[in-house]
Nucleic acid binder design. Structure first.
Lengths: 143, 143
DNA sequence: TAAGATTATGAAAATGAAATTCAAAAGCAA
DNA sequence: TTGCTTTTGAATTTCATTTTCATAATCTTA
């Protein structure tokens, strides 16, 4: 999976005429080694730990590239820090989010996907991605 | 509906020991007169148009109060501007978000709603609210 | 493989949204 | 009113992110 992502980024870079650099390789490695959501600052610190020369701006720039390449996705929480999460192959990215215990239950529903496409079509809208989050209480927290 | 919201805010303010001020009334009026999704800056400009004395900070502070009071909800898009949208009773809250021009197209789909309920039921999950955002390019931006 | 051309990098500066400060003004209770 | 507290607005500060620009690294092609 990690190799696939590296390949995916190589291809993206090749396509875009981007150069292959030591920094991008390092940042990609470290990003792929993280779990869940990383803020830019967190990733920068991780990068700096093993490669002190790499600058802030490069981490910012490179994460944006990952997002463009479809490897990562920007997430905005309410603390003013942009985070990046991993984009997994075939994921549909729908969640039941428990406001009691913060558990996240993932689910997939083809019919919902299909309906979304219909709605988009009706509005002449070209779908790039989507996010469906259902907030409430999970089985544990409601009882 | 507007009166209900005003009352709701009065009650919230009373509860919190907040004072009733001319500025808050004005900002609430103007916020209620807008349609979905106002950025702080947009609202500030609207406020300033009729009440030049009211400052930036007050608009920021007051919108945060509205969010706390449950009248408004902060939305974060990817342009670094916080927007506030109206919280409507029984609202469905689904959006097509154009990443080209930041246009927001609202839609409702009963079937999607129903499917969400089914999914929740299947997981023993109690729905409180949900958010469905479809990102992509609107008809204008894709052409 | 060296030269030339272009892209990427890093440090520092710039930007810009949002928060904070603080003196003055306004609301409130008695 | 009086006195106390909250709120306001202008200016300042903060802090994440972006930009700038000189230098360095990468790529191309001769």
């Amino acid at each position: 999976m990690i190799l696939e992502k590296k390949k995916a980024f190589s291809e993206f870079a090749a396509n875009k005429g981007l150069r292959s650099t030591r920094q991008r390789d390092i940042i990609l490695d470290i990003f792929l080694s993280t779990h869940q959501h990383v803020s830019v600052e967190e990733l920068y610190l991780k990068v700096k730990a093993s490669h002190p020369g790499i600058g802030h701006a490069t981490v910012y720039r490179t994460l944006k590239l990952f997002a463009e390449a479809g490897l990562a996705r920007e997430i905005l929480l309410h603390d003013g820090q942009t985070r990046y999460e991993h984009v997994l192959a075939g994921e549909h990215h729908d969640h039941l989010v428990c406001t009691g215990c913060n558990a996240i239950i993932e689910f997939e529903d083809e019919t919902i996907e299909k309906l979304q496409k219909e709605i988009a079509l009706r509005h002449g809208f070209l779908i790039r991605s989507h996010k469906l989050e259902i907030y409430g209480l999970c089985a544990c927290c409601r009882s």
